[in-house]
Write a protein that binds this DNA or RNA. Sequence first.
RNA 1: GCCGAAGUAGCUCAGUCGGUAGAGCAAUUCAUUCGUAAUGAAUAGGUCACCGGUUCAAUUCCGGUCUUCGGCUCCA
Length: 639
Amino acid sequence: MNVKLPDGSTRVLADHATAMDLALSISEGLARASVAARVNGSMRDLSAPLSEGAAVELVKFDSDGGKQVFWHTASHIMAQAVKSLWPNVKIAIGPSIDAGFYYDFDTQTPISNDDFPRIEAKMKEIIAQNLPLSRRELSKEEARAYFSNLGETYKDELIRDLPDGETISVYSQGEFTDLCRGPHLPHTGLVKSVKLLSIAGAYWRGSEKNAMLQRIYGIAFPAQKQLDEYLLFLEEAKKRDHRNVGRTLDLFSQSEQVGPGLVLWHPNGGRLRTLIEDYWRQEHYKNGYEIVYSPHIGRATLWETSGHLDFYKENMYAAMEIDEQEYYVKPMNCPFHIVMYKSALRSYRDLPLRWAELGTVYRYEKSGVLHGLLRVRGFTQDDAHIICRPDQMPEEIRKVLRFCLHILKAFGFETFAIYLATKPKEKSVGDQAMWDDATAALAQAVKDEGLVCAIDEGGGAFYGPKIDIKIKDALNREWQCSTIQFDFNLPERFDMTYAGSNNDKQRPYMIHRALLGSMERFMGVLIEHYAGDLPLWLAPQQAMVIPVSQKFVAYAESVHQVLVAADLRASVDYRDEKIGYKIREAENNKIPYMLIVGEKECVANTVSLRKRKKGDAGACALSSVIEDMQKEIREKAIP
RNA sequence: GCCGAAGUAGCUCAGUCGGUAGAGCAAUUCAUUCGUAAUGAAUAGGUCACCGGUUCAAUUCCGGUCUUCGGCUCCA
């Protein structure tokens, strides 16, 4: 029989040959490295027989699909190990994830990380046995009977919910059998290295109403070296953690006394935030926005009109009474902007209006979700509302998307993942034509910018479709910051209107958007992206003048004066310490420029330049250092 | 909110099978006046998260609360 390979060539194989046979016919190395096969576009076991004319691609670990198969098998191995150590444990689900795998268990006695070595040892035994994974297909009834006999009630429930008549596949390795669509590795021996990483609770089927299961996360690789590299990566991520960097750079803190999810910005963090905000304001004015301010609280009637007291109350803080009137702390800025809109009659000639506010909002977030700067209870959104006519809408969307990317790029983010969320299936407001128009405009804007987006079908808010932009950081992790959302709800609720050209009442379109998301989250992401090594234009401290000894303090001070006069953020390390000590500290504090001054510099009227992480660069004229710095600032150069 | 783990000096962490605690770094003082990632010595610093209970005695055991961490759910 003939099969087609990805390069377009065909290969002749014996009848009933498998993908493994194909691999072996090409090379033994390929056979060893293959984890599965993509046959006519779908993933199959290497042991599955091929059919005449099939298009076959051998999948190795280094592809996304290969990793999925590999980690999925690893999760089965973990489940087998756990079952063999605790036979009464019930197994739930165990998929591969972006990085590794997990398996959910229902356990009588809790498993803890102290048990990881035992589980890992057991897994290694299973791996060493090179157990083949074999696939079997059962009818729904057979499968249910099989798993309920074993007392695996979760598996039974999963099968129960599959469509009738569906063929159900199970995979076995040794004495362990699991419900699984597959495919899997041909045998357990391919998993050369494995490490369990963490354990956490997880609801069965992700619902708070269901039982809490124990989820064990792990990672595995075809070679020990890859595991070592991955563990190194985890360490790197930990080093970048904005909570640690924030402490060492003295950017911010949180306090039990102040309350969870509330951020204290220290002078360094305050400086960074001011720099971001100043740039943000400047760019908004340049791009046709006006900046507005609104209060932190508003009367209950405002939130009744907006619908927040109906739909968002659980996220809002309790009312406070002022002069026998109820007031609420704002969880959003939009109602204020709308009331502002309504403070005057608006004409079609006035639109579009683009109103931006660095609006500080407070939301009750469940205690368990708080996380450093990334998830807090009080935060400042870089919010804006664009109020426009329907005919202006596509252009406004294009503009806001372009503006968004412009701002994000200025901060050094170059790659994005864009998601277009469409009309939800259940509840929504606004007629279908508006949804279609708006969704099409969003999709078109993404296309016009030469970008691609993933469609999040039904993922929109009930009040309109949206685009979410996730930025990818230096470690390729995605962070949600920007969002561009249509709102068909609030203009209606507040009865926003403008006078059309015939003096008829028209309803404007309203778009909410945040570019950075919130100051808190964005700064958290920024810190992790740069691991604290901020670009010069954002560095709270741009230069440190370091006198070699106390004798040169006066000269150091004169250098400092020149830097300050040039609008650079500099200080002098006056301390009576050795130069190595002061340099070490400046490096640890991620100060971009160190200007060392001693006898030589004092005499020659120069400075000795040392750039962050780059080491000694020798003597330079102070003026040329300043020029370099100013250029670097102007260009927002990436370190 | 739920599951699990944790909270000891400013930071990172030891420790006490119940008899009120220790290191390194940081800080302060003194000496040193130094050339590109840690000079030396001394000193000070803790209601062992908080509140109860058990006990002759609790930082240690028990209960509750708060906070943090890892997840789940949710989300800027």
